[in-house]
Computed example of a mutant assay.
Amino acid sequence: MPVTDVTTDPEQLTMTLTAEFEASVDRLWQVFSDPRQLERFWGPPTWPATFTSFDARPGGHAEYHMTGPKGERSSGRWEFLSIEAPRRFEVIDSFMGDDGAPLEGFPSMRMTFEFEADGSRARLRNTTYFDSAEALEQVVAMGAVEGSTTAMNQLDRVLTGLREYAQGKGTRVEELSDTLVRITRLIDGPRDLVWQAHNDPELMRQWMLGPDGWTMTACEPSQTVGDSYRYAWAPLEGTEGESFGFEGEVLVVDPPRRVVTTERMAGTDGPSTINDSVFEEEDGATLVILHIEYPDRETRDMILATGMAEGMEASYARLETVLAE
C-alpha cells in the first residue's frame, strides 16, 4: 500500500501522513491539481468526493463534498494559501454546512502537501496543523487516520492509469477489513454504455448470468432512491444447482458514476450487505469498483467462499462481448 506512516503528535498539534508512489513528482502534482482526478481518491472507500469548484491560486477556494453509502453528506472547503508547483501547496481545510458557512463546532485546519523525488519514486508528505489538542483529538476520533489512509491508498490506480492498473487482470478481490471487500474489473467500453448495461433489463439478461448454464428469470432494476429491485436465476437443463435470487433497496444513485444498494438473498430476512458500485472511465475503458460491506467477518468469508468472484468474472467477460457487438 502507498501509505507508509500516519503519525499524530499531541505536542506539536499535527497529524502527518507519508506515502510513496511509483510515479514522478510531476505526475503526482497533476492528480492533486485536477479536480476530476483528485475526486477519484480524496474520499475514503464508500465516501467518494465530488469537487464542485476548484480555483487553485493563492486566495482561491476549492469546494467539495463526500457522499456516504446511505446518502450521508460531509462538505469541506479549501482556501489556498500558497502554491509552489510542483513541490508544495498549502490550504486551510474547513468543514462546511449545507448553507455554505463553516460548520459550528468543527475545527478549521492548516494543511501542507509536499512532494519530493526519491529515485524513480515520488513521496507525499501531508501535514495537518491543529489549533488545539482538543481539535486534534476530535478529528482523530472522527476516523481521520483510517479515512486518510484508505483514501490515499486508492491513488495508485489514478497515477498509473486504468488500463495499466487493471487490464488483463480479471476480477480482483481485496479484503480491506473484516467487513469491507473491494472488487475491481476493467471493462473495455465507455462508462455510459457500461452503466446502461448494468441498468437495462434487456442487456442485463444477456450478460449477468454467472457461469455458463444459467438463465435470468427475474430482472427488475431501479435507479430511484428508496425503490426496491429484484434479480433471480435458474439453472438450464443439464446444469446442477438450485434457483436463487437477490433483492434490496436503492440507497444512492449518481448516474453514470455511482449506485449504492442493499442486498440480501431473496425471500429471507438477511443478512444484508451494502453494495457500493463506482464506474471510472479513462481512455475508452471503464473500471467497475464494487465495495461490499458485510455485517461481520463470518458472513464475508462465507459469501466469498461460494465462488462469487469466479461467477462475476464469467459475467464481466460476457459483458465485454455484448458491448463489442
Rank of each mutant, 00 (worst) to 15 (best):
D178S: 13
P211W: 09
R182Q: 13
T217E: 02
P235D: 00
W207V: 15
A234Y: 00
S243G: 13
R230Y: 02
I183G: 10
R205V: 13
R230T: 01
A234F: 00
E220N: 10
S222M: 09
S177M: 08
I187L: 12
T179A: 09
R230L: 03
T217P: 05
W195C: 05
Y229E: 07
Q196G: 08
L203C: 08
T215L: 12
M208H: 03
V194L: 06
S243D: 06
A166I: 09
T184E: 06
G248E: 05
Q196Y: 09
G241D: 07
V252S: 02
E247L: 01
M208C: 04
V250I: 15
V225I: 10
E242V: 07
Q196M: 07
W195D: 11
D254W: 08
W214C: 12
L209G: 14
G241C: 05
G210F: 05
K169N: 04
D254S: 09
I183M: 09
E247S: 07
W214Y: 13
F246H: 10
V250P: 06
N199Q: 12
T224C: 11
T239M: 09
P190K: 01
E247R: 05
L180M: 10
V250T: 15
V252C: 00
F246N: 10
K169S: 00
G210P: 01
R182C: 12
W214L: 11
R191I: 11
Q206H: 08
G248Y: 02
I187M: 10
T224L: 08
Q196C: 02
E249S: 13
E237V: 05
D192F: 00
T217H: 06
V253L: 04
A197I: 12
V252T: 06
L203A: 11
W233E: 07
C219H: 14
K169R: 15
A218V: 12
E174N: 14
P235M: 05
E247A: 00
F244D: 06
R182I: 01
R191A: 08
T217V: 04
V225F: 04
S243L: 06
T184C: 12
V225Y: 04
P221W: 09
E174T: 14
M216S: 10
D192A: 10
R172I: 13
R191M: 07
W207Q: 14
V250N: 10
H198R: 14
Y229T: 03
Y231F: 13
M204N: 02
L251P: 03
D178C: 09
D212K: 13
E240H: 03
G245F: 07
A232D: 05
R172D: 05
F244T: 07
C219Q: 15
F244W: 13
Q167T: 13
L193M: 10
Q196T: 14
V250M: 11
G245Q: 04
G213F: 14
Q167N: 13
L186S: 00
Y229S: 00
L209D: 00
